[in-house]
Design a protein around this nucleic acid. Structure first.
Lengths: 108, 108
DNA sequence: CAGACTATATATAAGTC
DNA sequence: TGACTTATATATAGTCT
């Protein structure tokens, strides 16, 4: 019997896998909050977490009846955004103020 | 024995409480995504969720190495914000552009 | 009003296909 | 690239202090 704890314990999984009960360790792992080095993992995480963040922002705005905006600039310079209502408007800086310097700026 | 399911089943809790095993139903409940009518609950939720959102935004920016900004305008008009780096700047609209109309605007 | 407390609802890391 | 899977890490609703 593989002893009790199975809470994220890598030992547990090593044994499970060696026994052939599973091919791989499954389930969410704990993650240190620092830049994810693996590019593919970082990319995957970006995809999931950006969706998650937007979703949470949307829920939050509805549940609590407040205006929320989320702005994400991916490292390829792409803009992703969520705005709960039209009382918050999101736009490329340069698009609205072509004459002003293009420091990314959030104005509320 | 109070039969199996305890997953959010209100029946389960009615019985538990009637038996005096607990004073109240505990644990997170499911919540419909619509404006929370109870003012105090809404307020409480605002507090918890705004913190949660900011935290997630921060984690996200670190893990995925991207710039993120979150802007919240509470219904009392208060501004709450998070910005991962100084490449995103958050400010009251009127403060930067005193001559322009004061439509809340997020410019990136 | 701001935390502590629990049980549960949700978000998600890696793998697989 | 993206959709599924599964176990686990996290976020939180409602109560109480």
């Amino acid at each position: 019997m593989v002893t009790g704890r199975s809470n994220g314990d890598e030992n547990f999984w090593e044994i499970i896998i060696r026994l052939g009960l599973r091919k791989n360790r499954m389930g969410r792992r704990k993650l240190e909050i620092k830049r994810i080095e693996s590019k593919s993992n970082r990319q995957m995480s970006f995809c999931k977490r950006s969706k998650g963040l937007m979703k949470k922002a949307k829920e939050f705005s509805i549940l609590c009846d407040v205006d929320v905006a989320v702005v994400i600039i991916s490292n390829r310079g792409r803009l992703h955004e969520f705005s709960s209502t039209n009382s918050l408007y999101v736009s490329r800086y340069g698009a609205l103020f072509p004459d002003l310097p293009t420091i990314p700026t959030v104005v509320v």
